[in-house]
């Protein structure tokens, strides 16, 4: 069997006297879409934060098979984990949490700017992502001028513009109505697993979870079930490569320094360490 993309073992996390995670083991393979479910306080967000290096667990380890080899997240410094999150992972939060004074395209380009890309290239790449996610023509809108669903698509673009192949989403549809939720979930799945990338999503919405290939349920900080989702048959998820959007625009971005455009179906492959 291949080295798993993400391997968490006996994760323990405490907040004072409360135990948020009580020995969680989880192995996530590349290309999976994993829904983490559970009631409020079951530890699902804590698990996401440990898996993504936002929090350092009190016990256990998380190993990430990055482009340059496997790293143990808990041995990295704050700065290194910050860089890992910026360059290898993508994040989508419940309420977009975009910078309100920036335009859609500037928000999406932000991770690239932080990694030192020239602004014009960064915005061109971001614009290609926005177009692929159905936001063509809205690039210059400020976040306040977008609907909730549109803002969430900008967040999806921001999460992946840097070439991240592992996306973490925390209740990505939590603030949206059901019709918009379906659209946003479509966009999220198409742009991640649709091109062979990996998605880890925390949700309390059964409909969202049902569209993932795997559902992990937590109770009191422990995994109580780990089952295949309805989407594991790939009936509702587009096949890898079906998401051709940003790749179609790659002709305009081939000149970008440091970005291997041959690696992955779209922009993927800009590793967090090879990025500079």
């Amino acid at each position: 069997m291949n080295t798993p993309l993400l391997h968490a073992s006996s994760l323990v996390l405490r907040y004072g006297s409360t135990t948020a995670l009580a020995g969680v083991d989880l192995v996530i393979q590349e290309g999976e879409s994993v829904a983490i479910m559970g009631a409020s306080g079951s530890g699902k967000t804590s698990l996401l934060h440990c898996l993504s290096g936002i929090l350092r667990p009190d016990g256990g380890f998380v190993r990430f098979a990055g482009p340059t080899g496997t790293v143990d997240l808990s041995t990295l410094s704050d700065g290194e984990r910050s860089r890992l999150r910026r360059e290898a992972f993508g994040f989508v939060f419940q309420q977009g949490l975009l910078v309100p004074e920036l335009t859609a395209v500037e928000n999406a380009a932000l991770p690239l700017l932080l990694s030192g890309y020239p602004r014009a290239d960064a915005e061109a790449r971001a614009a290609a992502w926005l177009a692929a996610l159905g936001l063509r023509g809205l690039e210059a809108r400020r976040i306040g001028e977008l609907s909730g669903g549109q803002a969430q698509r900008v967040a999806i673009a921001r999460a992946q513009v840097g070439g991240a192949t592992l996306i973490f989403a925390d209740e990505p549809t939590g603030a949206l109505d059901s019709a918009t939720s379906v659209d946003v979930m479509d966009a999220l799945l198409r742009s991640t697993t649709g091109q062979g990338h990996t998605l880890v999503v925390v949700t309390h919405d059964e409909k969202v979870a049902a569209r993932c290939s795997r559902i992990v349920r937590l109770t009191d900080g422990q995994v109580v079930s780990d089952s295949a989702g309805a989407a594991s048959s790939r009936s509702t998820v587009p096949a890898p490569g079906a998401f051709a959007g940003p790749a179609a625009a790659s002709t305009t971005t081939t000149a970008i320094a440091h970005v291997p455009t041959t690696d992955g179906p779209a922009f993927g492959g800009a590793g967090w360490e090879s990025g500079r």
Partner: peptide, 16 residues
């Protein structure tokens, strides 16, 4: 507050 925390999680350095 929320925005700064999220930017931190996305990997924006505090100095930025």
């Amino acid at each position: 507050r929320d925005l700064y925390v999220s930017l931190d999680r996305v990997g924006m350095p505090v100095s930025t």
